[in-house]
Nucleic acid binder design. Structure first.
Lengths: 219, 219
DNA sequence: CCCGCCGTGGCAGCAAGTTGCCAACCTTTG
DNA sequence: CAAAGGTTGGCAACTTGCTGCCACGGCGGG
């Protein structure tokens, strides 16, 4: 049976903040976090709703792990934020796989974000030990398979300067021919960039890339 | 020169609500509204932030015009809301063109939404008569070129039932061959549907369609 | 200077998507 | 029943997108 204190479903960021903020403050040993973009968990604090949160220095004996999609590194804001977190002691890794947005606190409670379609986003907070353990082990597996931040960061250095313009052109619906001319690139090179972009977004079709780009607020 | 009472830039929905709600309440003759999705103006009232607003019956001598993209009719929630507004006396038209999100109140003040990329959405409120007149005339032109709600509504009846599944398949990055088989359609028909979908989204490329679909919360 | 490295762009071939056309089939209407 | 209208799916021609291959040119190290 489902005890009331083992699972709670929350709708909207406001309520999420009100009901889970104390969990973050009470964290003693570890916060692990998987996110597709920067903005899912940002609204946790109402007073920082409009900006990415400012990371605190990590106290000794405390571990923060952040697992992101490569896409966040396409966004200058995202890049800055991730680097900042890294400098403040958080471990940051990048995975090309699909990851559901998840937070694990002290291996005792997990928060998982639901879909965003049709209405406000929902979140499930789970205390049930079996679930927490299983989710944590899945997270660990994904974490091991992921690559360190700096590797990806170096790879994307050049792409990052072109990405905004490419995304804008793609988003405007114009075709490769036109876009390449606009950027003074050959069609070949333009498509190379698009391919890199799609790989960074973890997309296998342009439609999917469009969705992901919009999710990340890049268009 | 720009007088302070002729232009105000607002950041975020919260502030928009606080500073413009009285304008809606004070409207005497007309509210005209252009929107790409249902959710741009919904957050105007904090207490209805999580649901589309409930339309009020339109008093005699008062005109409400709403200009939407076809895409809102792909969403069951959107369809219901738009129909409701129509039943309550609002005029609703659909345009395939790109429209910037705009509200015109009593031909005396306009509110225009800015981009959403990188941070909270900004809104500009303009009282300057020249601007208001010019924007209103542009709106009128777009309005005249648009088609009545019920025409589009009929056209999209069948598409609406398939759209969610098609969008999901497209969003999952799988290719037409697979998707068609999944839906028990021929590739030809599947692509017909995709073409209709893209036209409803006003997209000329699949990337753009992905962006639009995400904007509308359809994926 | 020569060499290797790397990014670029042309080309070719293939994969994927787009569209018009038409025949087959269904339903509706007279 | 017959005619008309609409939907489907196969075919084909075409466009667009994807990628491996290779040649060219710049750049830094030996």
């Amino acid at each position: 049976m489902t005890a009331q204190n083992e699972l709670a479903v929350i709708r909207g960021h406001q309520e999420l903040y009100e009901r889970t903020w104390h969990l973050f403050q009470a964290a003693k040993t570890e916060i692990s976090c998987a996110a597709n973009d920067l903005y899912t968990w940002v609204h946790l604090r109402a007073d920082t709703a409009d900006r990415p949160p400012v990371p605190q220095d990590t106290p000794p004996g405390f571990m923060i792990r952040k697992l992101y999609r490569p896409g966040v590194l396409l966004d200058p804001v995202g890049t800055r934020h991730v680097r900042l977190a890294f400098q403040h002691g958080a471990q940051v890794r990048i995975t090309p796989d699909e990851i559901n947005e998840t937070i694990i606190i002290d291996r005792r409670v997990v928060i998982m974000a639901g879909g965003v379609a049709h209405g406000p986003r929902s979140f499930s907070v789970v205390w049930a030990p079996d679930v927490v353990t299983a989710v944590a082990s899945l997270f660990d597996a994904a974490w091991r398979a992921a690559t360190e931040l700096d590797v990806y960061d170096r790879e994307l250095t050049e792409l990052r300067v072109l990405a905004p313009r490419i995304l804008e052109l793609l988003g405007s619906g114009c075709k490769d021919e036109t876009a390449a001319r606009t950027l003074s690139l050959s069609v070949r090179t333009y498509r190379r960039r698009v391919a890199e972009l799609m790989s960074a977004l973890g997309a296998t079709s342009r439609f999917q890339a469009g969705v992901r780009a919009r999710e990340l607020g890049l268009v």
